[in-house]
């Protein structure tokens, strides 16, 4: 059995941890500076492209500072207008989000939230590993036990048929002697085979121990996701223009339906699948 992944509660992955640290450290200083003198963001060491974008946005913001109520109109313009205004609108939104986050202290919260993601990812990988192992263990045990059972079944059926002939008086004395020897050999072999099967049944049972482990890990991940959701929701509610209603994209690859309550767009049984197809003439 492979060793389970070891969890380190404090830091998941040194590289990622140091990346996060550098981002967290890098964002605090320039933020302070930006508070006093907005154009002095050069100190942050941003890339040239970003800097250029930021500059163009700053200029734009300078012009429209008084007209910040025009926002919805600006968003509306994005559709179908020339590329330049798309970038400036996008830049403006980024700037607004950035400012809001800083004012509300959410940059810290988002940093914390992002830090939990590698942890969750590692835990989920652990679940895949454990469940795959369990499935393989059970299937291996079945592969071993099935032939044993099939052989016992075949041998007992054959012996049973021959004993049937004994009771029908169709067997000679010599044949009967041979049958007695075969039956004895079979009876001697059965306990050993039954024991072998039993060992495989125990193995299948033991393979289910993953449930306990993965269950705990899943609970932990649910907690992490809940935290993340709460934090992101707070940021979204406070930073997003109210008229921007985002709907989650729904495609064809949704995986298993976790909760079908109150949903009419999914089927919950094979018979519903069959009924639907039949109703469509397939």
């Amino acid at each position: 059995m492979a060793k389970p992944i070891k969890f380190d509660e404090s830091c998941d992955n040194e590289d990622l941890q140091s990346l996060f640290d550098s981002i967290a450290a890098g964002s605090e200083v320039p933020l302070q500076a930006a508070k006093e003198t907005p154009p002095a963001v050069d100190a942050s060491g941003d890339s040239d492209d970003l800097q250029a974008l930021f500059d163009s946005v700053s200029a734009q913001v300078g012009e429209s500072d008084t007209a910040s109520q025009e926002q919805p109109v600006k968003h509306a313009q994005v559709e179908g207008s020339e590329p330049g205004s798309v970038f400036s609108s996008l830049g403006q939104m980024t700037r607004e989000l950035h400012d809001t986050l800083r004012e509300l202290g959410h940059d810290k919260i988002l940093g914390d939230a992002a830090r939990t993601i590698p942890d969750a990812r590692q835990r989920l990988s652990y679940i895949i590993q454990m469940t795959e192992q369990a499935a393989s263990r059970a299937l291996n045990a079945i592969d071993i036990a099935k032939p044993i059972q099939e052989e016992m079944q075949a041998r007992s059926e054959a012996l049973g048929a021959r004993w049937g002939k004994v009771f029908a008086n169709q067997l000679s004395a010599d044949e009967f002697k041979l049958l007695a020897t075969d039956t004895h050999a079979f009876l001697n072999a059965v306990p050993q085979q039954a024991e072998a099967t039993n060992a495989q049944l125990t193995e299948i049972m033991m393979a289910q121990d993953f449930q306990d482990l993965t269950g705990q890990v899943v609970k932990k991940v649910i907690e992490l996701v809940e935290n993340l959701e709460t934090q992101l929701l707070r940021v979204l509610i406070e930073a997003k223009p109210p008229e921007l209603h985002v709907e989650a994209p729904e495609g064809m690859l949704n995986g298993p339906v976790i909760n079908a309550d109150g949903r009419s767009d999914v089927v919950t049984s094979q018979s519903q699948v069959d009924d639907l197809l039949e109703s469509l003439g397939f």
């Binding site: 064809m252 079908a260 089927v267």
Partner: peptide, 9 residues
């Protein structure tokens, strides 16, 4: 595991 009617259709 895809159980949406849309998928089946």
């Amino acid at each position: 595991a895809e159980a949406k009617k849309e998928n089946i259709i």
